[in-house]
Simulated assay, not measured.
Amino acid sequence: MDPSLIIGLVLAFGALLAMINMEGASVMSLLLPAPMILVFGGTIAVGVATGTVRDFIHAFKAVPRAFRGDRRTAHSMIDPIVGYAEKARSEGLLALEQSLVDEKDPFLRQSLQSIADGVDAEELRTLMEDEITSTAARNRTASKFFMTLGGFAPTVGIVGTVVSLTHVLENLDQPDELGHMIAAAFVATLWGLLSANFIWLPIGGRLQRLGELEVERMTLVMEGMLAVQAGAPPQFVGERLRALVSDRPQKKSSRRGADKGAADPALTP
């Protein structure tokens, strides 16, 4: 589990609460039902109106993933693929079918099944690229939905403020209540900006990043399994896949390591 979204939201709302306390204000003065119903209800409603019901359902099904993250990373797939390369070199490609039961990653399991079934390299690449493309499209749909909410929320908040100020102007004959009513009117704008920058945009950005990492992981699996199918040496497969990982741990460079890499062009991806 990667708790970055939870940590970020806790710190953001914590900073807001700290400011409220330092200003001597009350949190309850911001928790007004009417503007919150308009901002959250109206924002989600116009968000649904911009797409389809299926997009809406898919987006909110992705919310737990935004908080939970993805335990499967591109780097974590390298060792299993190298293991399959070793098994294929020693026992043959058909032996990979024995690993289907124990393999938890659906995409990797699908590639193992295709290799065991004798699918040629070109067809296997096409199948895996199509799966990557469809996965990327689904991820973009969920991310775009919350980004759209982040764009609508401030404007919906302004609409709520305008409505409240109209009510204020209708009650100018009650000067004792004007201060309270004007303050309440701007709560809608506050919740519009707050929900956009503290909720919708962070969730959308988080889903976008998780989608990018998932595509990176699937691309690594595709290149690795194609190399396994081609009978590449396990050492080459490992070096090739490590070169594809963008967030791989950085090792301290050394003259000896540099000379070794320069002397062995087979390890260069």
Rank of each mutant, 00 (worst) to 15 (best):
G261V: 13
L94W: 11
M36H: 05
L149W: 03
I37A: 06
L94I: 12
S111I: 05
A262E: 13
Q174K: 12
F152R: 04
M225P: 09
T219A: 09
R240P: 05
M28R: 09
A45L: 11
I203Q: 03
P33Q: 00
I20Q: 03
S114C: 14
Q98T: 12
E239Q: 11
M19L: 14
E212R: 08
S254W: 04
H180E: 12
G157D: 11
I7N: 06
N171A: 13
R240Q: 12
F13K: 04
L112I: 08
A183E: 04
G160M: 01
P80R: 08
R209W: 11
A153S: 08
F145M: 01
Q110Y: 14
E129A: 11
Y84K: 03
A121D: 14
A183T: 12
N171K: 15
Q98K: 11
F107H: 00
F40T: 02
H167G: 15
Q235Y: 07
F67Y: 02
F60K: 01
V27R: 07
V63A: 00
E212I: 07
G92A: 05
E177C: 12
P202C: 00
M147G: 15
L207P: 12
G42D: 03
W191C: 01
G231D: 04
K251D: 15
P80N: 00
G179N: 06
E103Q: 11
R206K: 08
S26C: 05
V156S: 00
V159D: 06
L93I: 01
M218Q: 10
A227Q: 15
G14H: 05
I132C: 11
L210M: 04
V27H: 02
G8C: 01
E97G: 09
V39H: 04
A49F: 07
S29C: 10
V53C: 01
G92K: 08
I158S: 04
T155W: 10
D105F: 04
R109C: 01
W200I: 00
I132Q: 06
V237K: 05
T135R: 10
G179K: 07
R125P: 04
R72G: 07
S253K: 13
L16G: 15
I20W: 01
V228R: 09
V39A: 02
E123N: 12
S114E: 10
E239P: 04
T268Q: 14
R71A: 09
P106I: 03
S164V: 08
T161C: 12
K260A: 13
V163L: 13
I158M: 15
S90C: 02
D70H: 10
A18H: 06
A121H: 14
Q235C: 00
V168L: 08
T126G: 14
S114Y: 15
E129Y: 08
A184V: 08
